[in-house]
Design a protein around this nucleic acid. Structure first.
Lengths: 344, 344
DNA sequence: ATTAGCACTCGGATGTTTTAAGTGCTAAAG
DNA sequence: CTTTAGCACTTAAAACATCCGAGTGCTAAT
C-alpha cells in the first residue's frame, strides 16, 4: 500500500519519537512536538489507519502507538534520512582506531568504539574461512618459540609454544621455511591438523617440536574464533531492561553462540544488513534488531560487526556509524598484493 | 570479646545460611536446619547478644539476622573451614588454563575461569611495574614488523609496526640486537620514550623506523595496562541486583578505574587479601567485598586477581579457588633463570 | 539456664480507588 | 468530503488501605 505524505510524516515522527523516548506516542504529542498542522483528532484517524495497515501497534487499547516491525521496516527503507555523525563521535572513532596492530585487533577496537557510541552491545565475528598466507617460527628463548601466523586477509595471530627440549637456531629456521613453503593456503581452522600431518610426511625429525607447536596453534586459533561481545553492560541503561529478568534473558541470548551464529550467518554478503524484530528466523530474537556491517570490500570482507539490541534502535545513527567505520577500514586494509607477499 | 562455642556455632550458621540463601536468617530456621539443641527462644537470646556485640544486624526490627561486616570478618578469621574444590571445578580449571600462551594470556584465562566458578566479576590487574627483559624485531613482510617484548616476569607482548619505507633484513637484525642490548631493564611503561631517545643517541639512521616502532609499542603497552573485568554480567543472577538500578550502580563502580585501582593498590603484598564491606577505604564499596590473590610467589608476583561482589560471598570457596589457581601458576611460571635468558 | 507463650512489629502481598493519558466515535463545521 | 470539537470510554500506573506471616523481645514458668 502506498502511504500519502501525511501518513509518511506521521509514521516517521512516531518512529523517531519512540526511538528517542521509549514511550508510546500519542496524537497530542505528535501535533505539539512535530509541526503537523492538523488537530489531534485528524492525527488519531490517520494513526488508526496506519494501525489497521500494520505499521503501528498499540501496547494496550488506550495507549499511544508504537512502531511495528513493518513500520520500522518502512521507515528504514523509505523514510529514514542520512544522518551525519557528530564531530565528537568522529573524533572518538579516529582516536580509538589508530591503525597500529593487525586487522583482528583493529576490528576489536572497532567493535568497542561502535558499542560505546551507539550504547548497544556489538558482536564481532571474525571471518573464519581464512587461509594461511605465511607462517613463521621465531625462537625467543631456549625453550620458547613464537609462532607467527599471517592469514590472507591480513590478520596476524601469534602464540607461544613451550618446548621440552631445546633446539639449535638453524634447525628452527629450517623448520620455519619448510612449513611456510608447504602450508600456504591451509584453512586456519585445520592448521593444527596440517601441522600434525607434516610429522608423518617428511618431518619425523621434528616430531616433538611440531607436536608442541600444533597444540599451541590449535589452542590459539580456536580461541580466536570465539566471537567478542563488546559492552554487554550497556543494555542496563535501556528502559527496555528496567526489569532485570529481561536483561538476563537478553544476555543469555547474546551468550548462546548458536543463536547469534545462525542469525548472523543468514545475513547475505550485502555490505550492510538490517534485520528487524520478527524478520529474524530465530523466535527468541523477535523483539530485537541486528544491524550488521560486513567490514571490507564486497569481494573481500574480513569480519562482521553486528550491533544488536531492542527493535527501538537509532537505525539512522547506527548505519551512519557503521558506514564510517567501513570507510575507515577500506583505508586501513593492506592493498593486498603489496604488503603480504614478502613474509618468509 | 571472646565468643563461646554456642555463639560461634550460631554466628557461623547465620553466615553460611545467609551466603546460601540471601535471606535474613531467623531463630527457627537456625534450630531446624542446623542441629542446634536449643529452643528458638534460647537462640533468639543469643542472637540478641551477638547483635549487641555488632556481629549481626537486623534489616528491620522484626526481621531475621544478617551478618555485619564485623560478623563476616570474625567468620573469615576464626570460623571458616577450608573447603575442597569439587572435582568439577578442578577439572574446569585444569582444562581452561592449559599452559599455552604467555603469562598475560594465562592470567586472562584464570580471571575468566574464576569468575565463572564463583559467579562473580573478577578483575585482573597486570603487574605494571614490569621491566624489559628482551625485545626482538622480526620482519614479517616488506613493510610490516613484529615487535616482540618479553618482560622480566615472563609476560610476552607483541605488536605490529607498519613501515613507510622497506628496510633490508640485515639492518633489521642489527637494529633488533642493538635495542635488545641497550634497553634491558627499561620499565615497560617508558619503553616508547626510551625508543625515541635511542634516535637521538646513536641510531639516527633508524630514525623513521624507530619512530614507527615507538608509536606502536606505546599503543600496545598502554592498552595492555587496562584491567580486564571478566564476567560482569554474572551479577544479574544475584538477588542483590534484582533491582536494575543497583546493578547499574555496581557496574559503574566496576568500570570507574580509579575506584578499583585505589582499592586494589591498598592491598598489601600478602598472598591473599580479603576486604569486607566497610573495611574498604572507598565509601562506595561499603556494601561489597573484594578478595584478591597476588599471583605468584611472595617475592615475585605477576598480577592480581580480584573477585568482587556483594559482601554476601562464598568466602571459603573463593579462597579455595584462588589458592588452587595460585598453586597452578607456581607450576606454570618459568623458573626464572632457566628460560628467560636466551632470547637474543 | 532454658523455654513456652504472647504481644508486638513490619515488610510484602493483595485488593481498591484515583488519576492521567490516550483512544474511537459522533456530530457539527468548513 | 475533510477536518475537528467534544465526550464517553479504556487502561496502566500510582496511591492508599488492609491483611498476613515471619520473626522478634520479654515475661513468667520450668
Amino acid at each position: 500500500m502506498k502511504l500519502d505524505e501525511r501518513k509518511k510524516k506521521i509514521l516517521s515522527s512516531v518512529v523517531e519519537d519512540y526511538i528517542a523516548s521509549a514511550e508510546p506516542v500519542g496524537s497530542k504529542t505528535l501535533v505539539e512536538k512535530y509541526k503537523l498542522n492538523y488537530s489531534s483528532a485528524t492525527i488519531r484517524n490517520e494513526m488508526k489507519i496506519l494501525e489497521d495497515e500494520g505499521y503501528l501497534e498499540q501496547v494496550h487499547i488506550s495507549s499511544g502507538r508504537v512502531p511495528s516491525t513493518k513500520g520500522y521496516r518502512y521507515y528504514v527503507d523509505n523514510l529514514m534520512k542520512d544522518k551525519n555523525l557528530s564531530m565528537l563521535d568522529i573524533n572518538y572513532i579516529d582516536n580509538t582506531i589508530t591503525g597500529y596492530g593487525d586487522i583482528g585487533k583493529l576490528l576489536e577496537q572497532a567493535a568497542d568504539v561502535v558499542s560505546k557510541i551507539l550504547l548497544r552491545p556489538t558482536v564481532l565475528t571474525l571471518k573464519s574461512s581464512d587461509l594461511l598466507e605465511h607462517i613463521k617460527i621465531v625462537k625467543i628463548s631456549e625453550k620458547l618459540l613464537l609462532v607467527v601466523i599471517m592469514s590472507q586477509n591480513g590478520t596476524v595471530k601469534d602464540c607461544i609454544a613451550k618446548l621440552t627440549d631445546s633446539i639449535p637456531d638453524e634447525r628452527i629456521e629450517e623448520l620455519s621455511e619448510v612449513l611456510d613453503r608447504n602450508l600456504l593456503g591451509t584453512p586456519l581452522e585445520n592448521l593444527h591438523i596440517a601441522l600434525n600431518k607434516m610429522i608423518e610426511k617428511d618431518l619425523q625429525k621434528f616430531s616433538n617440536i611440531l607436536g608442541e607447536i600444533s597444540e599451541s596453534v590449535k589452542y590459539e586459533l580456536n580461541k580466536e574464533r570465539k566471537k567478542l561481545s563488546a559492552n554487554v553492560e550497556s543494555i542496563l541503561d535501556l528502559p527496555e531492561f528496567s526489569d532485570v529478568e529481561k536483561a538476563k534473558n537478553f544476555v543469555n541470548i547474546l551468550s548462546t553462540k548458536e543463536i547469534i551464529d545462525d542469525t548472523l550467518l543468514s545475513i547475505k554478503d550485502e555490505n550492510l544488513g538490517i534485520i528487524i524484530g520478527s524478520e529474524n528466523q530465530e523466535l527468541l530474537l523477535k523483539d530485537y534488531s541486528i544491524i550488521t556491517l560486513n567490514v571490507g570490500d564486497k569481494d573481500k570482507t574480513v569480519g562482521k560487526l553486528s550491533v544488536i539490541g531492542p527493535k527501538r534502535m537509532d537505525y539512522s545513527k547506527t548505519v551512519a556509524t557503521l558506514k564510517y567505520i567501513n570507510h575507515k577500514f577500506k583505508n586501513l586494509l593492506p592493498t593486498e598484493s603489496k604488503n603480504n607477499k614478502e613474509m618468509k
